[in-house]
């Protein structure tokens, strides 16, 4: 057994971990206990207080707005900020509470008329705004549905997915792929001449799925997507639009490989 003194860690002068903002940009001063750290901590705390109060104001306004909204209007998609629930910009917190329904109706009607007029001056089709069914254009899209059609490696390349039909919409998905692939379709309406835009990943550098289309065959809508063998793993999405009115009618997601669906979707 050695008689040498055992090497020990030097005793630290501090008694708490170094946490705080002061050292974040390279200050050599220990961050935890200095007066500067206290001042910075106070400032940051104040910042959080201000922004949380602001967010709370928005949530209150959104709740009041939501409660006063006529049946059939979309629920305000966001509750975080004043006016966030109001599709047409800011309203003071609580400002919607007393007479939000009629005021909003009137405001929306006037706004849509003005917008249509403006578009007509610029030569755009003027009927799109009204064609939203009166539910405003601030309506958020529906939640991304669970992935529905699944293709496993080894299965035949041409794969007929199961129906994802709503009450009066029949939809079939055909994926031409050799990779493990999931697919989901969110189709809110389908009329006129729908077109499926190319599908793309959140990373703009990834190649898009350009070989895709939607057709009406034998009483159902058929979505066909061809996926190259070397297509990188990712979640790709594309919008179904009416080619004439350019109104969005739905969305198609394709997940290739083990890519995680982005959780930021709402």
């Amino acid at each position: 057994m050695s008689h040498h003194a055992r090497i020990k860690r030097p005793h630290l002068t501090r008694t708490a971990p170094n946490r705080g903002w002061a050292g974040i940009f390279g200050s050599e001063e220990p961050a935890g206990n200095s007066p500067a750290a206290d001042r910075i901590g106070t400032g940051v705390g104040l910042g959080y207080r201000v922004i949380e109060e602001y967010i709370q104001l928005g949530q209150n306004a959104a709740q009041a707005f939501s409660a006063a909204m006529p049946q059939g209007w979309p629920t305000p998609p966001l509750g975080g900020m004043p006016g966030a629930g109001a599709p047409f910009g800011a309203a003071g917190a609580g400002g919607w509470a007393s007479d939000a329904g009629p005021m909003f109706d009137e405001f929306t009607r006037n706004w849509l008329q003005m917008w249509q007029q403006w578009l007509s001056w610029y030569g755009f089709p003027a009927n799109w705004a009204g064609a939203e069914g009166g539910n405003g254009t601030g309506a958020s899209a529906a939640e991304a549905p669970p992935f529905e059609a699944t293709h496993q490696p080894g299965a035949p390349r041409s794969h007929a997915g199961r129906e994802a039909a709503t009450s009066d919409l029949r939809v079939r998905v055909q994926l031409d792929t050799s990779q493990r692939t999931d697919c989901a379709v969110d189709l809110r309406a389908c009329s006129g001449t729908p077109a499926l835009n190319e599908l793309r990943a959140p990373d703009p550098d990834l190649p898009r799925l350009a070989d895709c289309r939607i057709d009406f065959e034998a009483g159902e809508w058929v979505i066909r997507i061809s996926i190259p063998d070397d297509q990188p793993d990712a979640v790709y999405s594309g919008v179904i639009v009416d080619e004439v009115t350019a109104l969005p009618q739905g969305t198609v997601w394709v997940r290739i490989g083990a890519a995680e669906p982005h959780t930021g979707a709402s």
Partner: peptide, 18 residues
């Protein structure tokens, strides 16, 4: 634009504010 209106925009407020 990037997420085609499928991102909860309020998630950006704290970062944007600070």
């Amino acid at each position: 634009i990037g997420r085609r209106d499928r991102f909860e925009l309020d998630r950006l407020i704290r970062f944007g504010f600070f």
